[in-house]
Design a protein around this nucleic acid. Sequence first.
DNA 1: ACTTGACCTCTAGTTAGGTCGAGGTTGCAC
DNA 2: GTGCAACCTCGACCTAACTAGAGGTCAAGT
Lengths: 153, 153
Amino acid sequence: MGKLPDLLTIGDVAARSGVPHTALRFYEEKGLIRAERTGGNQRRYPRAVLRRLAFIRAAQRVGLSLEDIRAALSALPDGRTPTKADWARLSRQWQEELDARIDALHRLRGRLTSCIGCGCLSLKSCALQNPDDELSEYGPGAPKLKPAVEGGI
Amino acid sequence: MGKLPDLLTIGDVAARSGVPHTALRFYEEKGLIRAERTGGNQRRYPRAVLRRLAFIRAAQRVGLSLEDIRAALSALPDGRTPTKADWARLSRQWQEELDARIDALHRLRGRLTSCIGCGCLSLKSCALQNPDDELSEYGPGAPKLKPAVEGGI
DNA sequence: ACTTGACCTCTAGTTAGGTCGAGGTTGCAC
DNA sequence: GTGCAACCTCGACCTAACTAGAGGTCAAGT
């Protein structure tokens, strides 16, 4: 375990990033990361991949899909180590994303609060009746959630 | 379309809630909602189910799993219409949940901000190195995410 | 040179959150 | 009393994000 070589094996990357090697291959298949190959077809990763992975995991924690992350990362150079400017650009983007999400949560929280007020017994004014805000596009599962429709609850 | 009957068919519920009938059966299977049956085995829903559904969908938008939601809803009476007190209790719980999530997002956002500062070039101080906070338990997909491990990036 | 662990590909399985369709009943309106 | 839309169950399929294992190859230490 002396000096780090410039190119890491998949095992190295797994150990250092905490991402299972199976997931690393999966991410590669999905276009989130890349690796060179040795003559014997084994993967060799540049060290920059570790930062990429940290980013991917961080983004997942915020609830973004791998596809979203892939799209965002495609802005980063694949070959060279990203410059400060590259990362700054990305970070700015992410902050907007995060801000939007925080905002949406705040709004939902506000609705619940007003729901205590109405007791959810007077249907007319229940805030849950009009749930059309940002996160509605963001349902789990494969098929998109349809927004709640006409007529109220 | 005169007065509403006291018991709704699955089609009624689907139309009024915006939740597809397939999903309604799915939710029933998962224990999120219930229905009486006619002599001929068709579902008949009490009107309270609509509120329950609105709640389920709202919770999903916040990113909670159906299992979490099921657990929370199990606090509500199944037969009778929930009282103001029932809902107030639930709402209070949810607010805490939401607050926690908002908090986690804020922290992540803060990390990114500091990351612009470090330019993500000086690895020593990159905030992404220590991503151990609340949402880490909250990865997508079936298997739990492992937390990032030793050694930094 | 040989051994052995780390690596390769490929297929299949898992969980969550559903949808779709076949094949058969029900229930309401005329 | 008959027509037909709406309902029923059940099993197959879907996407996302992975994991597990079989069967075979590579590379590094002795």
